[in-house]
Write a protein that binds this DNA or RNA. Structure first.
Length: 1025
RNA sequence: GGGCGGUUAGCUCAGCGGUAGAGCACUACGUUGACAUCGUAGUGGCCACUGGUUCGAUCCCAGUACCGCCCA
């Protein structure tokens, strides 16, 4: 059945994709030759909730190009595929699904276990979306190895790493100010926060000095001239977050700020609260900004937290996990009384400070933004707002008044938002787990410095260094349920200092039990904690803790309970039972597991080794690790690349990959970020449906210049779809001419005598060399460009045309063989970028032993290039171009065949003419040819080594031909001028390399030769015109 | 404010020491043994600006302006 006119992508891609998957063409090691070198790529695991967007399409195209290229070369390839459990994102999706049906229980109502089984249920049903979409793109991953960060050996690997790092002191727990997401009620890392400029306000409040004190406030200008001098009983502070003032610990001013020098160390009354706070000095306040005085709220601002730490101020937490003003704890009067004691020097600790709720009753339980409005209103009502005299206009009476209004500046402020939840992030003082990144960053920096891992483009390297050299501790705990639960268990601290066994009976009576438990101190004491792979292992540690306790408490059974609450209850129950029964087997010691889960990036940071079966030393780990290349977005360098480097080096002391290829974000044709709100999102699946996966892939490859921005234009994709059609039709042309009859794959080119055939074989070798070189340098764009130019510009534009007359002559057989080979090579070389259409062509042409995907990548070299053939074909194509151009410029009707006269012909040119006369006559549409002088009224073509005339007496417009010649001569004159100038400059000959000088000289000679011919032509025209 | 990058044809981008290229768009024409998802010919550029290095700068260096991105 003859080929269709165009490639039916929709039909063929589905069929071919299935074929590849059924045949497992992407299986690890498929098509590898014995002893082949390994080439492995870890896919950046997309979120299991994800669906394919342009970034994925781009990123995975590049990976697939490399993998296919290496696989065809017989290398032992692995493209490891899989998905990431994506803690927050997935939990969010499933919660939202549940919320769709109001009759469903919420996450909290159903509890942890039930919710997690819902998540798994969801994952089984919908988690495969993106994997299927990758298949549509033509990705040739090893689908049987699909991994998931919550399945298989992965959880064990993650736990093992946590335990190891904990034991090495690389992971610690601490109360720190972290970014808190009030929607998800979890801490998130710095990287998950987006700072966005929003319209905000700056309020100015007066904090009144305690004890009725006053001072002289003096403001000076830059010259030291006093501009304001007044007696004040307050200090003015500015804030964009009034509600946090309830937790202020001090007012800070810069030590050099003379305005406040008289009152440093004094106390001010905290408005709306019954507390006094000190005025302190710190380097942080900027004296030139606002009033120069800053309120310090240690528990709700990152800068303030640092100041508070330096000054030893207590940090009072004001909000609950949902960002509401706290409603827990003792009544305000009780709490504030205690706060005053602490301020007066009463000893305290972090836990107590955290438990104190200093939010006045009025604000308790209010949302933070509602509280803000209330605080502002109350400050205004109390006359504590800084005010300004303003002119106001009474519309009824038409009179003007002067009134005092509170100063509220409109001010753009940078506000932190959760990248998932989109709610305002609250700095919050909470207990979290951290990786002590400073301790593991060294090897990750060294590996890139010494080239063990190369980051491309190099600017990525600089970004990498910059970030790692200034790295902050990594908060890895998340208050979520979906994820790897932290392998740390807690138990109550039952230590007693001076226990005596009153009776010496090795048993506990009620009095002794009460002695141990004291006044309930174990309930308040910091719990003991241990880290281990599972509860059985951790129980050992707790038994060790119990050992020094009085018998039989030291033999209590360690049992796991849900939380601290349950533990306290169970311990009490167990002691009561024992007290009644005096049966030691009734004694239990409850422990509970840390409810937090790990940051998703902690586990994806282990993706390279985790997917290869670590901690087992699997054959895959030995073969494919360290992996060859990581291809990922530059936006993910901190989240993932740097962390994989740190983690792999910390865990297995090897770099995870040898090369990192970073690319930019895919944008729309105008360079705008694609976003749902802008409505400019291009869905790769729509593109695939419209233009086919190959067109999208080719566009992706062609856009992938190192370090460039990626603007995706559908017109360009359409162009590459056309490119596929072009190749398709060349093959169809070959089919019509019997090229494929009896043809089977040939690795080496046929013996050819006709110059056109010799030439195109050489061009093919050049294309191969360029593609190899480009791909080796990760220059997907130059590879794509070279292929485009070769297939369209050489094969289709010229070679197919040359072949037409050759099919009728004596070279017909070798031309068929050459064309088959050249088209074969085109399919092979294009296959990594355009796998579908090439695989389809492969199967519809010739006899094939293997699928194209497993066909050998060619190895021939540039020795196939024949310089004589190149020169000859250059003469032929130039002559044809010149004739066509001249014809068009003097408006010779395209249908009209013309005569051609050769005025001069070098030996080489004559030989080239003779051997290719048929081609030239046909393509330039020439009727007769003869040698001789130029007839009158002819147009002239000047070539290197030849001059031709086209007699067109009566047909041409003399003036127009003059213009044409003049234009060409002008162009030549410009070139000649430049070349002469250069050659006449003695410094040029002296300093420039010899070959450059020679080239310039030869160039000048050729240009002058052409110019002379044109001058002669002009002269001839002058005679008749 | 700090870091990284960009500024080349109408648009999107390559090139990065020897006086500029592609695709798209545009204009004219449609002879052809595959292809109108096409062919042929053409229009279009003080390579942001100012200095410097060099025999020679779009390319290297410094500065200026504007535009991005990331981090505060």
């Amino acid at each position: 059945m003859p080929m269709e006119k165009t490639f039916n992508a929709a039909e063929a891609e589905a069929r071919i994709s299935k074929l590849w998957i059924d045949r497992k063409v992407g299986a690890a090691g498929a098509n590898s030759v014995p002893g082949a070198e390994a080439f492995s790529i870890m896919i950046p695991p997309p979120n299991v909730t994800g669906s394919l967007h342009m970034g994925h399409a781009f990123n995975n195209t590049l990976q697939d190009v490399l993998i296919r290229w290496h696989r065809m070369q017989g290398h032992d390839t692995l493209w490891q595929v899989g998905t990431d459990h994506a803690g927050i994102a997935t939990q969010m999706v499933v919660e939202r699904e549940l919320a769709r049906d109001k009759s469903n229980a919420t996450r909290r109502e159903m509890g942890r276990e039930a919710f997690l089984s819902k998540v798994w249920e969801w994952k089984e049903q919908s988690g495969g979306t993106i994997i299927n979409q990758l298949k549509r793109l033509g990705a040739s991953c090893d689908w049987d190895r699909e991994a998931f960060t919550m399945s298989g050996n992965f959880p064990d690997a993650v736990t093992k790493v946590f335990v190891d790092m904990y034991n090495k002191g690389l992971i610690y727990r601490g109360k720190r100010l972290v970014n808190w997401d009030p929607h998800f009620e979890t801490a998130i890392s710095d990287l998950e926060v987006e700072n966005i400029e929003v319209k905000g306000h700056m309020w100015h409040f007066k904090y009144i000095l305690a004890g009725g004190e006053t001072y002289e406030y003096i403001e000076k200008d830059a010259e030291g001239q006093v501009t304001l001098r007044e007696k004040r009983n307050y200090i003015s502070i500015a804030t964009t977050r009034p509600e946090t003032m309830l937790g202020d610990g001090a007012v800070a001013v810069h030590p050099s700020d003379g305005r406040y020098a008289p009152i440093v160390g004094k106390m001010v009354q905290l408005p709306l609260c019954d507390r006094l706070i000190p005025i302190i000095t710190d380097e942080y306040p900027d004296p030139t900004f606002g009033s120069g005085a800053v309120k310090i709220t240690g528990a709700h601002d990152f800068n303030d937290y640092q100041v508070a730490k330096r000054a030893g101020l207590p940090c009072y937490r004001l909000m609950d996990t949902q960002g509401r003003m706290r409603a827990d704890g003792a009544p305000y009067e009780v709490a504030v009384a205690r706060a005053r004691e602490i301020a007066a020097g009463s000893p305290t600790n972090e836990t107590e400070v955290d438990s104190l709720n200093l939010v006045p009753e009025k604000y308790r339980g209010r949302d933070r933004f509602e509280a803000r409005k209330l605080v502002v209103a109350d400050i205004n009502a109390a006359g504590l707002a800084v005010t300004l005299l303003m002119k106001s206009y009474d519309e009824e009476t038409g009179s003007e008044h002067l009134t005092l209004v509170p100063v509220v500046e409109d001010k753009p402020i940078m506000q932190p938002f959760g990248d998932r939840s989109k709610v305002v992030i609250e700095p919050m003082l909470t207990d979290q787990w951290f990786v002590d990144t400073a301790k593991i960053v060294g090897p990750a920096l060294d590996a890139v410095r010494n080239g063990d891992t190369v980051i491309m483009p190099q600017s990525g390297e600089r970004t990498y260094f910059h970030w790692l050299e200034n790295i902050e501790p990594w908060c890895i705990s998340r208050q979520l349920w979906w994820g790897h639960q932290i392998p740390v268990w807690y138990g109550l601290n039952l230590d007693v200092d001076n226990f005596t066994d009153d009776e010496g009976d090795n048993a506990l009576d009620e009095v002794e039990i009460l002695n141990i438990l004291g006044d309930g101190g174990y309930v308040e004491r910091e719990a003991r904690s241990h880290c281990a792979a599972d509860s059985a292992a951790v129980a050992e540690f707790f038994r060790d803790d119990l050992a020094p306790l009085p018998h039989p408490l030291n033999a209590a059974r360690v049992v796991e309970v849900a939380d601290r609450h349950a533990a306290v209850a169970l311990l009490a129950q167990s002691l009561a039972d024992y007290n009644l029964s005096q049966d030691p087997t009734h004694l239990t010691y409850p422990i509970w597991r840390d409810p937090d889960v790990l940051d998703t990036w902690f586990s994806s940071g282990l993706w390279p080794i985790g997917t290869l079966g670590w901690p087992d030393n699997t054959p895959e780990l030995q073969k494919y690790f360290p992996t060859s290349t990581l291809i990922t977005g530059a936006d993910i360098i901190f989240f993932w690349v740097a962390r994989m480097m740190m983690m792999q080096l910390a865990v297995v002391n090897e770099v995870p990959f040898k090369t990192v290829y970073l690319h930019g974000l895919v944008r729309d044709a105008k360079g705008k970020k694609m976003s749902k709100s802008l409505g400019n999102v291009i869905d790769p699946l729509d593109i695939i449906n419209e233009f086919g996966a190959d067109a999208l892939r080719f566009a992706n490859a062609a856009m992938a210049s190192l370090g460039g921005t990626l603007k995706l234009d559908t017109q360009r994709i359409a162009g590459y779809r056309n490119f596929g059609t072009k190749l398709w039709n060349a093959c169809r042309f070959a089919e019509m001419n019997g090229v494929w009859e009896g043809y089977s794959t040939a690795a080496t080119p046929p013996k050819a005598a006709a110059t056109a055939n010799v030439w195109i074989i050489g061009e093919t070798a050049k294309a191969l060399a360029e593609v190899n070189e480009s791909l080796a340098a990760y220059r997907f764009d130059t590879a794509a460009d070279a292929l485009y130019k070769f297939v369209w510009g050489k094969v289709c534009d010229w070679y197919v045309e040359f072949a037409k007359p050759l099919f009728d002559g004596e070279a017909a057989a070798e031309t068929r063989a050459t064309m088959a080979w050249v088209l074969d090579q085109s399919m092979i070389l294009l296959h990594p970028i355009m796998p579908f259409i090439t695989e389809e062509l492969w199967s519809t042409t010739g006899t094939r032993a293997k699928l194209l995907v497993h066909t050998d990548w060619p190895t021939y070299g540039l020795d196939l290039v024949t310089p004589e053939a190149d020169r000859e074909m250059a003469f032929v194509t130039t002559l044809i171009d010149e004739v066509r151009s001249a014809r068009a410029q003097v408006h010779v009707p395209v249908g009209l065949k013309i005569d051609l006269v050769a005025m001069t012909l070098s030996d080489e040119a004559r030989a080239a003419w003779t051997r290719n006369e048929n081609l030239i006559r046909r393509l330039a549409r020439i009727e007769t040819f003869e040698e001789g002088p130029a007839p009158k009224g002819s147009i002239t073509l000047a070539l290197d080594g030849a001059a031709f005339a086209i007699p067109l007496a009566g047909l041409i417009d003399i003036a127009e031909e003059k213009t044409r010649l003049q234009k060409t001569m002008d162009k030549l004159a410009k070139e000649i001028g430049g070349l002469t100038g250069r050659l006449n400059n003695p410094a040029f000959a002296a300093s420039a390399p010899e070959e450059v000088v020679d080239e310039a000289r030869a160039n000048l000679e050729a240009r002058e030769d052409e110019s002379a011919k044109l001058r002669a032509a002009l002269a001839r025209l002058a005679e008749i015109g």
